[in-house]
Design a protein around this nucleic acid. Sequence first.
RNA 1: GGAGACGUCGCAUAGUUCGGCCUAGUGCACCACCCUGCUAAGGUGGAGUACCCUAACGGGUACCGAGGGUUCAAAUCCCUCCGUCUCCGCCA
Length: 421
Amino acid sequence: MIDPQLLRDNPDLVRRSQEARGDSVALVDEAVAAEVSRRDAIAAFEQLRASQNQFGKQVAAAPKDEKKALVAQAQSLAAEVKAASAAASDAEAEFHRIVGSIGNPILDGVPAGGEDDFVLIKTVGDRPTFDFTPRDHLELGELLGAIDMSRGAKVSGARFSFLSGIGARLEIAIMNMGLDRAIAAGFIPLITPTLVKPEIMRGTGFLGEHADEVYHLADDDLYLTGTSEVALAGYHSDEILDLEAGPIRYAGWSTCYRREAGSAGKDTRGIIRVHQFNKLEMFSYVLPADAEAEHERLLAQQEGMLRDLGLSYRVIDTAAGDLGSSAARKYDVEAWVPTQDAYRELTSTSNCTTYQARRLDIRYRTESGKTAPVSTLNGTLATTRWIVAILETHQREDGSVVVPEALRPYLGGLEILEPVA
RNA sequence: GGAGACGUCGCAUAGUUCGGCCUAGUGCACCACCCUGCUAAGGUGGAGUACCCUAACGGGUACCGAGGGUUCAAAUCCCUCCGUCUCCGCCA
C-alpha cells in the first residue's frame, strides 16, 4: 500500500507514477475522495460512540427505579451507533480497496512504458561463439540424461519436467553455490512454506492484476507460492523489527509454482518456463534510507554468481509498466542464450520500498520512538532456469559440457558433463 | 479423524462463576527522576498498538487469538474459525 500521507501531500507524484506504469491516473483522485469520506465517517462514528459510552456509565450508576427509563432512552442511540459503525467500516474498506490498487510510486530514473522500454545498464562478458552449430538446452539435457520433458508431461502435464541424474545434481549444485555465498554475505538460510494464507499472498501484492498466475487450493483456501518472497515477506508480518544492528537478510530456499496463465505458446520447449522449479531468493528488511544501497548489493550478489558461472549477461532497469505493483524499481539480470540469440532473464531484484511492509505491517522504531514501515527488497540468487544458460554457454561439439570452475566443488570436482550412451 | 484443556497491554499472571466499580489489576523486565559513598537496595512517576480531531496543549475511538451475534452495556454470555498443548485412533 502506498503512504496515505503521500496522497495528501503530493498526489501529483502518485499520478505521474501511475501514468508511467500505464495504470489509471483517475484512481488517484478517487483515492483522495475516499480518504475524505473515510475520515468523516470515522469522526461521526467515534462521536456517537463516545456519547454512548458516557450514557452507559450513567445507566450503571443510576438508582434502580431510574434505570428502566434510561435504558429505553439508550436504545435509539445504540441503533445510531450501529449504523454509524457500519458506515465507517464500509468507508474504510472502500478507501483500502482504492488505495490498495495503486502501484508503488516508481523511483526517479525508472523508465516509463512497457516491457520493451527498459534501460540497458550494462553488458558483461563476451557472448560465446561456436565453430559448430550449438545445440539448445533441451537437446543437450537429453544427451546428458539430465532433462526429461516427456515423462514430466506424462505424470503432470505440459510445462512439467523431471531433472534426472546430472540434471538433478546440477540444480542442487547451483542452489548450494548460491546458498554458500548468501551465508558468507550474512543472509540467514530459511526453508519456507510454499502454501500460504490469502492475507499473506495479498499482502505481498500477488493477488492484484496477476492473480491468475497463482495456484489456489480452493478446499483449503491456501495459495501455492510462485516465489519464496511471499513467505519471506510474511515471515515478519505484524512485527516491529530492530534494525539498529543493520539490515535483516534471509536466503529463502523453496520450490516455486506458477500457472503461466498468460504465456500459452511461449517458451514451450524445455525448462525455460515451467510450472514448478526451485529457487534461492534473497530477501532484505532495511531502513528506508538504506533501500537503494541494498538494492545495489543484491544486484552485485547476482552478478557475482553469473560472472563466476562464466555466463555472458546484461543488466536492465525494468520499465515502470513491467514492474509488479509492489516494486518501485526492478533490475533484471539476463543471460545470453546462444540458440535463442537473445538475453533471457535469470534473476530479478526488486526494491519494494515501504509498499510491501505497509501492507504486511512490518515496522521499525524511529529515533523519536514512533513506528514506521521498513523497506523490503528481494532478488533471485539461484534457480533451475540457470541450467539453460549454463548448458548452452559451455557446450562442446560432442555434446559434452564444461563445468564452470566455481561450480565444480558442488559436483564433487566434476569438470566435464559427458553425454550418456 | 475422536476427546479434552487453553489463548488477557514485552514476559508471567489476576479477572471470565453471578455482564456495568476492568477504557483491564499485580509481579518481572524497561525508561526518567529522587535517595544512597559505591557493580546492590529503596522511593516517585512513566510506559502498548492503530486510527480520528487539534496550530499546539490536549481530547476521543478501537484492540483481552480472529470474525460474527445477544445487550442500553461484553475480557466476561452465544456461534464460527484459527492456533497451542495433552490423550486416543490412523498413516508414511
